[in-house]
Amino acid sequence: MTLAEVNLVDTPTELTELRDVDPGTLDRLQARLSAEAEDARLLDLAYTTTDSPVGPLLLAATERGLVRIAFAVQDHDRVLAELAEQISPRILRAPRRLDQAVRELEEYFDGRRHDFDLPVDLGAAKTFRRTVQRLLPSIAYGQTVSYTELATRAGNAKAVRAVGSACATNPLPVVVPCHRVLRSDGSLGGYAGGLDAKRTLLTLESRVTT
């Protein structure tokens, strides 16, 4: 479905005035709908996008907190479709719920913020993957650890591969700092946002601390 709607019918001239729709009207209506949906507690997922040094970021939050951050290379439309499947299709663009997250990300990219102070919604699952993801914020700003070290901290020194996949599936990159996990030889390993994004984040953090 494209934004520009095709006029499928040959409209009588009397009605052409009633076909014009000002895009500003739709923006206004959309904003009002988001606010009313929030008030009526029908907004299961609010999302917005924000620009950053690692490209446009998609942010999505439930009523409990931030649930997803995605890079452009992950395809924002695809990510929203996944969220519709996994959490709820009641999704609207509603920047208000993401105001604090956007502000903290701006501060982080400016080098003024080292820790995020945001409600996050990582779900209730007690899997090894979630254990690893909950450990990631304990790696301090500007520091790095190896996948092996993180496996040890998570209580299973042999689960290096599982640690790698926990980092790869981190739903909240940047805020939950999986970019601070490297290979034992110091090479970058992988990153959902691409290795350039990982390098950008590590450079940002090293520049400000030294």
Binding site: M1, T25, L29, L45, A81, A84, P89, R93
Partner: peptide, 16 residues
């Protein structure tokens, strides 16, 4: 089921 936001974008003008 697509995100509801897709429906608002695709059909908002029609409903208006």
């Amino acid at each position: 089921t697509p995100p509801f936001d897709d429906l608002v974008r695709a059909h908002g003008a029609r409903v208006w």
